[in-house]
């Protein structure tokens, strides 16, 4: 018998637990030439703000040992153009669509969320509470439990959509933030966003990035992500979506055993645009080989 990879979260069925992480799949449609989008659980768009954003001045990327530092700065076409030009093309695929929203103030988060109120085809919003690459908003919001709770409450009210709060790992203790997201009415949390890092250009004796600090992703951060997902899952009764350095199906299984309801694949999409199909296949193979019928049988087995 084929194992059942489906996942139920906030009243929706996802055909499997694998999602494309925000910022690594564009708006989703860019990957269509490489993978069957209908074979993944969901696409999470890159961060979308009310107004278009240009993003940061280059350089924007720096490769590290088994990882990648980025300083993109939420470059996006804005909510109106996304809804008018991109969404109709994305909706044609048989996958869940989660829109990641970004703002620089509570007001902007609320307005961005309002743009998606009643917009069919958008299944949920993920609130980017943790972008390290911008001067305002993002991380500043993500590290303050009171602000996390307020932003989550506001976007939920404004959009009427299920809300996933994307949490930052750049804190000493994730528990107060996880609880704040839940108390604000989040339907799930996703973690981790990138770990804050930096790179030095020793020839110019200066920082490599214009904003000095940048976000680290890739296999290098997987152990940290796993630990934080495990901690958040123990704390919360809402789903925890695990993200950070997942390259294979076996990596994804580790997150599920640590308590993740679903997983997001990020930097792996840069290395291989077909990576998500391989992750889905890898989970399936692991379940078959180990006679696991449902993901619930292994979810959170690590107490």
């Amino acid at each position: 018998m084929k194992p059942d990879l489906s996942v139920e979260m906030f009243g929706l069925t996802f055909k499997n637990p694998v999602m494309g992480a925000s910022g690594t799949v564009g708006y989703g449609i860019e990957l269509a030439p490489y993978i069957d989008l209908g074979r993944i659980g969901a696409v999470v768009t890159k961060g979308i703000s009310i107004e278009p954003r240009q993003g940061n001045a280059p350089p924007r990327l720096f490769e590290t040992a088994s990882g990648l530092l980025n300083s993109i700065g939420v470059q996006n076409i804005g909510a109106a153009r996304f809804i008018a030009e991109v969404l109709p093309r994305l909706e044609k695929y048989d996958t869940r669509i989660i829109v990641n929203i970004y703002g620089e103030s509570i007001q902007e988060y609320r307005q961005a969320a309002e743009c998606f109120c009643g917009v069919e085809g958008v299944d949920a919003l993920e609130v980017n509470l943790s972008c390290p690459n911008v001067d305002k908003g993002g991380l500043a919001f993500g590290t303050d439990p009171t602000l996390v709770q307020t932003v989550v409450r506001e976007v939920k009210e404004a959009s009427g959509k299920p809300i996933i709060a994307k949490l930052t790992p750049n804190v000493t203790d994730i528990s107060p933030l996880a609880r704040a997201a839940r108390d604000g009415g989040a339907d799930a949390v996703s973690l981790i966003n990138t770990l804050m890092g930096m790179a030095v250009d020793i020839r110019s004796r200066g920082p490599f990035f214009g904003k000095v600090k940048a976000g680290l992703s890739g296999p290098a951060i997987k152990p940290v992500a796993l630990r934080l997902v495990w901690e958040a899952a123990r704390e919360l009764d809402i789903p925890v979506i695990g993200v950070g350095g997942i390259m294979t199906g076996e990596d994804a299984v580790e997150f599920i055993m640590a308590g993740a309801g679903a997983v997001q694949v990020g930097t792996a999409n840069f290395v291989d645009p077909a990576a998500m199909n391989a992750v889905v296949g890898g989970i399936e193979t692991f379940m078959e080989e180990n006679r696991i019928e449902r993901l619930a049988d292994i979810r959170g087995v690590i107490k």
């Binding site: 860019e30 990957l31 490489y34 993003g55 280059p58 990327l61 980025n70 993109i72 840069f270 645009p273």
Partner: peptide, 8 residues
């Protein structure tokens, strides 16, 4: 392929 937006 235009998803990382790194080569601006």
């Amino acid at each position: 392929i235009g998803v990382c937006l790194g080569c601006a």
